[in-house]
Lab assay of single mutants.
Amino acid sequence: NLRWTSEAKTKLKNIPFFARSQAKARIEQLARQAEQDIVTPELVEQARLEFG
């Protein structure tokens, strides 16, 4: 299971509600691909840039 830093959680809250669950799934996918067990603000930002 993935842990989220408080900064990453804050960044996730800045994503519009309607896109948040999809973004969260993508962020967690990116973390797993990078073999990380902690979601960082950088991963959230990477996903945000993908979504535009």
Rank of each mutant, 00 (worst) to 15 (best):
F18P: 13
R48M: 15
E45R: 06
E42G: 05
T10E: 15
K11R: 12
I27Q: 00
A25L: 12
F51H: 06
G52W: 14
D37G: 08
E7T: 07
A8G: 02
K9R: 11
V44C: 03
Q36R: 11
E35V: 06
T40P: 02
Q36G: 04
Q22A: 13
Q36C: 09
R3G: 04
F51Y: 11
R48H: 08
F17L: 13
N14H: 10
F17G: 10
A19H: 13
E7K: 10
T5G: 03
E42M: 06
P41L: 11
K24A: 07
W4G: 00
L49P: 04
E45C: 06
I27Y: 01
R32C: 05
P16C: 09
L49D: 06
N1L: 12
E45H: 06
A19L: 15
K9I: 15
K13R: 12
T10R: 15
F51D: 04
E45Q: 07
V39I: 13
R32N: 05
G52L: 15
A31V: 05
Q29R: 09
W4Y: 02
I27P: 00
P41T: 09
K13D: 11
R26T: 04
K13S: 11
P41C: 07
R26D: 04
K11H: 10
A31K: 00
R20T: 03
F18S: 07
A8F: 01
E45S: 05
E50F: 09
E50P: 05
R32A: 05
E42R: 05
S21K: 14
K9M: 14
V44P: 00
K11I: 13
Q33F: 08
L30T: 02
A23S: 04
L12M: 08
E50A: 08
A25M: 11
R48C: 10
Q46E: 07
T5N: 04
G52R: 13
W4T: 00
A25G: 05
A23L: 15
E35N: 15
W4R: 00
A34H: 11
A23W: 12
Q29A: 12
V39W: 00
T10Y: 10
G52Y: 14
E35P: 05
A23T: 07
A23K: 02
L2D: 01
F17C: 12
P16G: 03
R48Q: 11
S6N: 12
A8S: 04
K11N: 06
F51P: 03
P16K: 04
K9Y: 13
N1G: 13
L49C: 07
R48A: 13
R48T: 11
P41E: 12
R32G: 03
A19Y: 15
A25V: 10
F17N: 09
V39L: 01
E45A: 08
T10C: 13
A31Q: 01
P16Q: 03
I15S: 02
L49R: 13
E28T: 04
T40A: 02
E45I: 06
Q29L: 10
Q33G: 06
R26S: 04
F17V: 11
A34Q: 13
S21V: 11
R32S: 05
P41Q: 07
E7M: 07
Q22K: 14
Q33P: 01
E35H: 15
N14I: 08
